[in-house]
Design a protein around this nucleic acid. Structure first.
Lengths: 194, 194
DNA sequence: GTACGGTTCCTATAGTCTTTAGGCAAATTC
DNA sequence: GAATTTGCCTAAAGACTATAGGAACCGTAC
């Protein structure tokens, strides 16, 4: 039996690729073993079972995605940064549906995935430096930004926008416009009368 | 063997209750059979296997949720309606995490779940009648509203807001304020200079 | 070159979940 | 009360997860 050269990293990466092809749910330990041309039991030395594999893919995807987002917003600010930030997430979800699903995995509070997730909050904060927000307001704005990006990509990937006109593309740019305006006028507006 | 009196509805309802207790993923056909004190095979006459059961729960949850949302926005308009609408979703997600997860299920375009989903878009449109939006703008606004509500509840349920201050409650009202302002000033704003 | 130790991958096995086929008994109908 | 329908059952096969333990491969040392 020739050795294939398995490592944790290779197994997780194979799982991520497989998830993009057949869906995150379907990328089971068994399926990954098949894809690698290896027996199922062989993977258990490299990843911590089914949940270890899923968390590995989630972590890989979150890291990869953070790299792309960081790259996208580098050298930009204000509306440019906002659009680059949000679009990096959306593009990733479309290019890597399986990895993207993995980032939705719910994990325990002590999972290493949590640390990877924290980096994303930092990137959102970086984008918001281009807007006139107090420190307190920034937390709320980070949560709004995260909600819009996550909600939109989820709904779009789920096909919720497929049966109404116009195309998702137009809504995307209109929503980013609206978000930009909202962030620019955030402070002080709360006290304005309706 | 005394008969338990199974029906499609009772099985799906048991699955939904179980999902709220132990999570949507864990509410398998086997687990539901155990909860009902019945053999696994007995369920197959009432629901169409594993995916049929999941889609049944998704449909039940979407219908139930639409009822609550409709009730919440009845007799309200403008900001009141917006807050009632969004908060109905958020409350449901917190009270029924399993059912709520079920509404995230991805289904084929011909599934009966799709029809149930369409009702929610209609409710969002109803809320937006209280805002000065053109027909074209309304589609974008529906998508924005859906994205924010879905994204926020997902992130909150996933615990993403647990490790930063202030509490989610405050962000929620601040975000709804911002959304209300955005919707009120949507039209025309696109042409305003920054 | 071969003996050793550690690692890699294997076979074997057991448990759980899904699904279908076919049977017996309870409810329903006349 | 007999016939029919229905409901729930047992039985069995296939897939995935997981663990235990064995054998082949690798580098190293002699």
């Amino acid at each position: 039996m020739p050795r294939v050269g398995l490592t944790s990293d290779r197994v997780v990466r194979a799982a991520a690729d497989l998830a993009d092809e057949i869906g995150f749910e379907a990328a089971t330990v068994s399926a990954v073993a098949r894809a690698l041309g290896v027996r199922v039991a062989s993977l258990y030395s490299h990843v911590d079972g089914s949940v270890g594999l899923q968390e590995g893919v989630a972590r890989l995807a979150l890291d990869e995605l953070a790299d792309r987002v960081a790259d996208a917003i580098a050298g930009r600010s204000g509306r440019d940064a906002l659009v680059a930030f949000a679009t990096a997430y959306r593009d990733y979800a479309r290019a890597h549906p399986g990895r993207s699903q993995a980032t939705r995995l719910r994990v325990g509070p002590d999972s290493p995935v949590v640390a990877a997730g924290r980096r994303h909050a930092g990137l959102a904060r970086a984008v918001l430096r281009g807007y006139p927000l107090s420190e307190a307001d920034t937390v709320h704005a980070v949560r709004l930004l995260g909600s819009v990006v996550r909600g939109y990509t989820d709904l779009e990937q789920g096909g919720s926008f497929d049966h109404s006109e116009p195309a998702s593309e137009e809504s995307w740019s209109r929503i980013l416009d609206a978000l930009d305006r909202t962030l620019r006028s955030w402070s002080g507006a709360a006290t304005e009368p309706g």
